[in-house]
Amino acid sequence: MSPEKILKVENLVVTFPAGAGKKVHAVSDVSFELAKGETLGLVGESGCGKSTTGRAIMQLIRPAQGSVNFEGSDLTRVKGKELRRIRQGMQIIFQDPISSLNPRRRLKDIIAEPLDIWSKLESEERYDRVREMCDQVGLDFESVKDRRPHEFSGGQCQRISIARALMLSPKLLICDEPVSALDVSVQAQILNLLRVLKSKYDLSMIFIAHDLAVVKNISTSVAVMYLGRICETADSDTFYTNPAHPYTKALLESVPEPDPSLIGSEGKMRLSGELPSVIDPPSGCKFRTRCPYSQDICAIQEPELVEISAGHKVACHFPISR
């Protein structure tokens, strides 16, 4: 029997109006599942639809099509109070923690905020809970409680947003580039913290990032997105030993290796050009304008996401094999 799923996203489509009655597809036909206790790394360049997917799962943006099953309900079909109640079970943290925190409030009230909406705890109990969460994320409650966000470093603000996200004991935590803006030393602290909290609170996670080395450290499975679509997905072991999509290869070879002896820097695959606009995407395979393996058929026919081995799916006419 397969492990219990906490989240099942099926055929998710998110569109935005693009003027003149046109629509852009920011997310096209994205499907994946997340088993309890797992971490899915959602990877790709800026603008490829990772954050939009995260927000559409939370219903912060309503998807145009598809379903988001979370703990037995399809979130796309519920609204209002019911939606808010179910959504307590999922929380999101963002890349830029400082601007996502209210600059005028004190730290203890920022962290307590989720409680104000959902439960009428007495202030004693509220702050007890805040104190406990501060402790969990490595902040000293007494010395930080009355400060405001600008007094903290980026890493500390990320700890604050994690504490706040965990106040209502969520089951799913969506982390949208939580370490991309941090120094490598602080990045390691936050990755370790997330790993500890995940097992302590039985969390499942979606970890959005663009650096595949970071994702490898924290994820049990990986999905790579390009221009609104998933182009490769597999469990981490398979993914990192047998990457098959040319875009995955380019992402892997762009990771800066911190050791010159590991680098055969000549002949590394580099992406030329920019991510094409979603307003006017290429025909056929969306990656073909930057793909060194592209053939005629790539411009004509869009490759489907097919399973090439158990759980390993790739959307490419000419997947790379070892």
Binding site: S185, Q187, Q189, N192, L212, A213, V214, Y240
Partner: peptide, 23 residues
């Protein structure tokens, strides 16, 4: 310590990084 805190592609998945604590 700086070197060790960097996540590396050739390191195994899901093992704690050797972070530099503090600031």
């Amino acid at each position: 310590a700086l070197f060790e805190s960097i996540p590396k592609l050739n390191a195994p998945s899901n093992v704690p990084l050797r972070a530099i604590e503090g600031r």
